[in-house]
Amino acid sequence: MMLKPFDLKTVTLIAKQYPTNGHSPFLVLTEDFERYVLKPPLNSIDKTAIVREFICNQLLSIWQIKTPQAASLCLSDDLLTSDFVKRNKSLQQNSTFFGSLYEPNSIDLQIFFGASSKVSQRKIANIADLLDIALFDIWVENEDRKPTNNNIILKPVNRSFQVLPIDNALTFSSMSFESLNPDYVSFSDNDSILYSPLGLSAIRLAKKNRNWVQLAQERFYLCILDTERNFQQICDYLPTNYSLSSQEAASLKSFLFNPKRNKKVFEQFKYIVSTAK
């Protein structure tokens, strides 16, 4: 898997802000006329949340889980002196931001399944990816993707939809990287995306193959191996003001590639799949 550095793009227009209970991102236009969703840190001590976004974007790429293209965004000189930016502290406190490519006509998974139906579920082109996303979430201890808050959008592709996970700011148990403990797996079973209607459909589909558990396990360890091979590159490609210290990088590496922990991760995944109804 070939990783590449994040493109640095200059924002020339801020179209609107999405009010949320979290980072309240902005829809922006870059100098090359592309639209991105810009996520700023909440405050000066929230930098780690943005680092997690950059890291997880690369991890998802290695796992071959589709997600919106990411970039490092900076504001144009005109925007930096604008009244709008002056009124928004989150935009003043940083020189670069995490941006994910805006997916026009995408639909929030929860809205799509407000009235769940088998007909709707058959329109999902990559429903099996829900299993990979669920396992990934346990591995990175994602606290924010759950049946009641999917953080998944559906991208229209031809006559079907493609599942795209978004928002990874609350991964790694929302802890500092130095505080990560490789001896434990801190993930609530009931928070798994597999308890959603689409997740249950993904489980039923997977169980049609008697060897699916073995195949899932083989894929899991191959993804871990590929990630470990690319770990230094992941760190090197972080934007300068979001780089990891040597201690942070060492702690994260120990956490992600601990054999005993990863065995527990997959055991928890199997338990969730076997009990989800």
Score class of each variant (00 low, 15 high):
Tyr36Leu: 01
Lys123Phe: 12
Gln58His: 09
Gly114Leu: 02
Pro40Ser: 12
Ser95Phe: 14
Ser117Leu: 12
Lys66Tyr: 11
Ser76Phe: 05
Gln69Arg: 11
Phe97Ser: 05
Ile50Leu: 13
Tyr36Pro: 07
Glu31Leu: 10
Asn88Asp: 12
Asp77Arg: 03
Val85Lys: 15
Phe112Ser: 00
Leu101Gln: 08
Ala70Pro: 00
Asn57Asp: 04
Glu103Lys: 13
Arg122Met: 14
Gln58Ala: 06
Thr96Met: 06
Ser116Arg: 01
Ser44Cys: 13
Asp83Gln: 15
Asn57Gly: 12
Ser95Asp: 15
Asp32Phe: 02
Gln110Trp: 00
Asp108Cys: 05
Leu75Ser: 06
Asn88Lys: 15
Ala49Cys: 11
Lys118Tyr: 09
Phe98His: 00
Val51Gly: 03
Ile107Gln: 05
Leu91Met: 11
Gln69Trp: 01
Lys66His: 09
Leu101Ile: 07
Phe112Ala: 07
Ser106Cys: 09
Tyr102Ser: 05
Gln92Ser: 07
Thr67Ala: 13
Gln121Met: 10
Gln110Ser: 00
Leu80Glu: 14
Pro41Lys: 04
Ile62Ala: 12
Asn88Trp: 03
Arg52Gly: 14
Leu60Gln: 04
Asn88Thr: 12
Ile124Ser: 15
Phe33Arg: 12
Leu73Glu: 01
Thr67Pro: 07
Asn88His: 13
Leu42Cys: 05
Leu60Gly: 13
Leu29Ala: 06
Leu73Asp: 14
Ala49His: 13
Glu34Asn: 13
Tyr102Lys: 01
Gly114Asp: 01
Gln64Ser: 14
Gln58Phe: 11
Arg122Trp: 13
Ala70His: 00
Ser76Ile: 09
Val85Asp: 11
Tyr36His: 13
Arg35Gln: 01
Gly114Tyr: 01
Phe84Met: 15
Ile55Val: 01
Gln110Tyr: 01
Ala70Thr: 11
Ile111Asp: 02
Cys74Asn: 08
Ile65Cys: 07
Asp46Cys: 03
Gln58Ser: 13
Ser106Pro: 02
Ser61Val: 08
Ser44Ala: 10
Leu91Gly: 14
Glu53Cys: 05
Leu79Gly: 08
Thr81Lys: 10
Lys118Gly: 03
Gln64Leu: 14
Ala125Lys: 04
Val119Trp: 03
Phe113Tyr: 03
Pro68Met: 06
Phe54Thr: 03
Phe98Ile: 04
Ala125Tyr: 10
Leu101Asn: 02
Asn105Ser: 11
Tyr36Arg: 07
Gln93Cys: 03
Ser120Trp: 04
Lys39Ile: 01
Glu34Tyr: 04
Ser82Leu: 15
Leu60Glu: 10
Arg122Cys: 13
Val51Arg: 02
Gly99Met: 01
Ser44Asp: 07
Ser117Trp: 02
Lys86Thr: 10
Ser82Ile: 15
Ser100Glu: 15
Ser90Val: 13
Ser117Met: 06
Ile50Glu: 00
Lys66Gln: 04
Ile50Cys: 09
Ile65Arg: 00
Asn88Cys: 10
Ser76Met: 03
Leu60Ser: 13
Ala71Met: 08
Trp63His: 07
Gln121Ile: 11
Asn126Cys: 09
Leu80His: 04
Leu109Phe: 09
Val119Pro: 01
Lys47Asn: 12
Ile55Thr: 03
Asn88Leu: 08
Ser90Ile: 06
Leu27Ser: 08
Asp77His: 01
Ser76Trp: 03
Cys56Val: 05
Gln69Ser: 11
Gln64Lys: 15
Pro104Asn: 06
Pro41Phe: 12
Ser95Met: 09
Ser106Arg: 11
Asp46Tyr: 10
Arg52Gln: 06
Gln69Asp: 08
Phe97Gly: 07
Ile62Asn: 02
